[in-house]
Design a protein around this nucleic acid. Structure first.
Length: 881
DNA sequence: GAACTCACG
DNA sequence: ACGTACGTGAGTTCC
């Protein structure tokens, strides 16, 4: 049997991977997407080809002779972006660690080396595969040399294979004629000029007729398209040069020893370390046979026996610290993980409900451990609290919240990530153990693995506790964790349990009323369009409006026409169908998301229980899901009417209090700008005051338009001002927007300095902070992409403001709920909407609760401007707002 | 599952 | 020159 060699064009494949994959980084901020993509395709090739030899060729960074010649023709190449450049040496190191030889040579491109080794290997009787993204290499194809070119089509990578016959088939030319083809048509990507005006079509035609560049030239006078004829006559030198540029050398004087290229084991210990460092979790399972996986499992045991469970819980109770994970999904207890130290040895147990070890039993034991003063470490304390009531002062450690504070940008805080970052251990992820199964499904199908999962969770929570606390301390966020996030966790848990009462019948009627109008609009829209189509499909709608009805302003998104509201609003005045569509959109949104959507969440008690997420946002705000009760309509009257279905229980009213412009007040305080602080001390209407000061007009003479503009500028400042954004918002030119901003900064000079300082700080430290020390990393500032960098600047300006406001209301929430409890009131905090608190208030407690809200919200932070609130009562959320 | 749209602060 | 305002979650369509 013939031996096989795989030759890879290193830069070409890295380049492809870099542009084809989203921007991955490891926790140190090293970009890894190109390396990841390279390895992915390498492993795929290894499985498909099973080669005996493997070598990767790289260009040396110094420009080669051929490129120098070309540069004389057409400037310089675009430099490699820093995000890719930094991956090249790492890639070489990884290959080195896997025992793969790297081939480079001064004065020779990777192409030349690949060509040379391919031919030599063929001569030795081997089958050769060359992997590259570069079609130039097709000239090397023979019966035994196959060029493989990966192509990405619609997110999927397919590989095109070219032996000599495939080249012939695809191009009607022999492999060697590919050189001639390039010489004639050129290749901008590869810096080959070619003949002006000659493209692939003409070039192929000429070659089919004359066979080569030289022969075509010899018959130049008879060449048919005049354009090509003239090109030959006037620019033949270009074709000659191009041919030389396009020719891959197969006689490079490179030393090559096949034995060093022979593949032994790619999955070495050294490679494992690299993969860990790069955080390529998916690849680590490949190392399993080499015995490199975590040793944690040696301490694990699955407990099924009731007596043994009893014994272990009794032991655990005596421990000062335990790791405890109660795995729950949709109200069901699916398992319990328990970890503690026994005579210096870590013991970890997984238990699933079965036999005498019932759900209730596990719950009971978990609760006992929490209550008996063991400092319990868990990944998600609030999930555990769903099934038990604990005093707010119970000592608990929440690993996910700690990890969130340390890096709020992650989308999830899974145990394997926490273990990797804070313990330096690679644990099998949930997916490795359970595949794509949900926990509930795993409970039925993969019991052993599920038990292992809860072990890993309890193990990680317990072991990572100290490192996480130390990291919080080092980052100056220990207080934030202990005095803000952990107390808030209990408050949020209470809010989730309370829920909010909803009048189901009224909600249903609201939906039915909408449906009547929706049906009318649908008919009207179809009638005006002259056909029935799916109005909900932006694609179909775009075709109707911009093609069939020929409306102006088409094209905007990658996939077609934009039919977003701001586009349609511009057309609504001229086209009746468009205003119908806008109304249709509004109503169907209200119907599906709110009328129908919320109905599904009402429990037997007539209440809706949202989940308040504490580890989602980048800035420190909380978020609300299933359902989201932080985006209930209010801006339009029709939407606002929906709030009439949110009602307090009998004998209660709603008390709603929201901060007045908290972010702008935070800005005034943090910047220390005297003029803005003074403005707040004097004026009721800050936007009017801003207008008066920025436009230099008396307060009384500010027009509504001027006030509106000033308000937009105020918002813009908080969002991280840009003239473009402001001009969009106000429908003015960028120049005018620039002038507004300039005026604003002249009026409030310290604000400019404050914002500039935030950006500088983000660049220096890599993060910005709130008044309470909460951090937000801003990695975008390091990007070589202008847009990303600009985004980073706006984030640096906005996050401390939005985040400080979030901190303040968190403090208020903790204090308000504490006082409601301490003063033995029946009233309960039930919702938070970023700057607003909603209290279900007993009718006889309204006065007392109003006073509490007033004191605690205003007193949540000591700023150089006062914190003001607006407060209302009502028999529904509609009335109370 | 990504893209689009739209509800909120 | 580049092409956007900051922070979220959910429903629908379509590949």
């Amino acid at each position: 049997m013939r031996e096989k060699i795989l030759l890879i064009d290193g830069h070409s494949i890295l380049n492809r991977a870099f542009y084809g994959l989203p921007d991955l980084t490891n926790s140190e901020g090293l970009h890894t997407n190109a390396i990841y993509g390279f390895l992915n395709i390498l492993f795929k090739m290894m499985e498909e080809e099973k080669p005996d030899y493997l070598t990767v060729a790289f260009d040396l960074s110094a420009p080669t002779f051929r490129h120098k010649m070309y540069d004389a023709y057409k400037g310089t190449r675009r430099p490699m972006p820093q995000e890719l450049r930094q991956q090249v040496p790492v890639m070489k190191d990884v290959l080195g660690a896997m025992g793969v030889p790297i081939l480079s040579m001064e004065g020779y491109e990777a192409d030349d080396l690949l060509g040379t080794i391919a031919k030599r290997s063929e001569a030795k009787g081997m089958d050769v595969t060359v992997l590259s993204g570069d079609r130039d290499l097709l000239q090397l194809a023979t019966d035994h040399i196959c060029i493989r070119i990966p192509k990405t089509k619609g997110g999927k990578t397919t590989i095109e294979d070219y032996f000599a016959k495939d080249v012939q088939e695809a191009y009607q030319l022999s492999p060697l004629q590919i050189i001639e083809l390039k010489a004639l048509m050129g290749d901008t990507a590869d810096n080959i000029p070619g003949l002006p005006g000659v493209g692939e079509k003409t070039a192929t035609k000429l070659l089919l007729e004359y066979g080569s560049v030289e022969n075509a030239h010899a018959h130049a006078e008879e060449i048919k398209p005049n354009k090509a004829k003239n090109a030959f006559l006037e620019h033949y030198d270009l074709a000659v040069l191009s041919k030389d540029l396009a020719t891959i050398r197969i006689d490079s004087p490179v030393e090559y020893d096949w034995e060093t290229a022979r593949i032994h084991d790619l999955y070495t210990q050294e490679a494992y370390e690299f993969f860990k460092e790069l955080e390529f979790k998916n690849f680590l399972s490949r190392f399993e046979e080499t015995g490199n996986t975590s040793k944690a499992e040696e301490h694990f045991a699955t407990i099924t026996d009731f007596a043994k469970a009893e014994e272990l819980f009794a032991l655990a109770q005596k421990k000062e610290r335990v790791g405890l994970e109660l795995l729950e999904e949709k109200g069901m207890i699916l398992g319990l993980g328990l970890a503690y130290e026994e005579e210096g040895d870590l013991q970890v147990y997984g238990m699933l409900p079965q036999g005498f070890v019932t759900e209730a039993y596990l719950l009971d034991k978990a609760k006992m451990l929490c209550q008996q003063g063991n400092a319990v470490a868990s990944l998600n304390v609030k999930a555990m609290l769903r099934h038990m009531d604990l005093d707010h002062h119970t000592a608990m450690f929440d690993a996910q919240i700690a990890a969130y504070l340390l890096n709020p940008l992650k989308s999830e805080y899974a145990y394997d990530d926490i273990a990797r970052e804070y313990l330096g251990e690679m644990l099998p992820a949930k997916e490795d153990l359970l595949g794509k199964l949900s926990y509930s499904k795993a409970a039925a199908e993969k019991e052993e693995e599920l038990a292992k999962s809860v072990c890993y969770m309890a193990y990680t929570a317990l072991k990572a506790r100290q490192p996480l606390l130390e990291a919080l301390e080092a980052a100056g966020m220990k207080k934030l964790y202990t005095d803000m996030e952990m107390p808030l966790l209990f408050t949020l848990s209470d809010m989730e349990k309370e829920g909010i009462r909803v009048n189901a019948e009224e909600l249903k009627e609201y939906g039915e009323k909408l449906q009547v109008r929706i049906a009318e609009l649908e008919k009207s829209i179809w009638q005006q369009a002259g056909e029935e189509f799916n109005i909900n499909s932006p694609k179909q709608l775009g075709v109707i409006l911009f093609e069939k009805l020929q409306m102006p302003g088409g094209k905007k998104t990658k996939t077609g026409y934009s039919t977003a509201a701001d586009v349609l609003e511009k057309l609504a005045a001229d086209y009746a169908i468009v205003s119908d569509i806008l109304e249709y959109r509004q109503l169907t949104k209200l119907k599906s998301t709110y009328a129908d959507g919320l109905a599904g969440y009402i429990d037997e008690g007539g209440r809706i229980h949202s989940t308040f997420n504490q580890t989602i946002t980048a800035t420190g705000r909380i978020s609300s899901t299933e359902p989201n009760l932080q985006n209930i309509p209010v801006r339009t009257e029709l939407g606002r009417l929906l709030r009439k279905v949110f009602i307090p229980q009998d004998g209660y009213v709603f008390l709603d209090a929201d901060y007045s412009q908290i972010e702008l007040r935070v800005l005034a305080h943090m910047s220390g700008d005297e003029k803005l602080i003074q403005a707040y001390r004097e004026a009721q209407d800050i936007h009017r005051m801003t207008a008066s000061q920025v436009f230099h007009i008396p307060f009384e003479e500010v027009t509504p338009l001027q006030r509106r503009n000033a308000k937009a500028v105020n918002f813009g400042i908080v969002y991280g001002i840009s003239s473009f954004g402001l001009s969009q918002d106000l429908s003015i030119t960028r120049k005018e927007a620039e002038q507004y901003i300039k005026n604003y900064f002249e009026t409030y000079p310290k604000i400019k300095g404050f914002l500039d300082n935030l950006v500088q700080q983000a660049k220096d430290e890599g993060y910005v902070s709130t008044m309470f020390g909460r951090r937000r990393p801003v990695p975008e500032l390091k990007s070589s992409n202008f847009m990303q960098r600009s985004f980073g600047e706006r984030v640096a300006m906005n996050s401390p403001i939005q985040g400080t406001a979030a901190d303040i209301i968190k403090i208020a929430m903790i204090q308000v709920s504490r006082r409601l409890k301490e003063e033995n009131l029946k009233s309960r905090l039930i919702l938070q909407i970023h700057d607003e608190l909603l209290i279900e208030t007993a009718e006889d407690e309204v006065e007392q609760v109003s006073a509490i809200l007033e004191q605690e919200m205003k007193g949540a932070a000591e700023l150089s401007v006062s914190l003001e609130i607006d407060m209302h009562t009502g028999k529904s959320w509609y009335e109370a707002k």
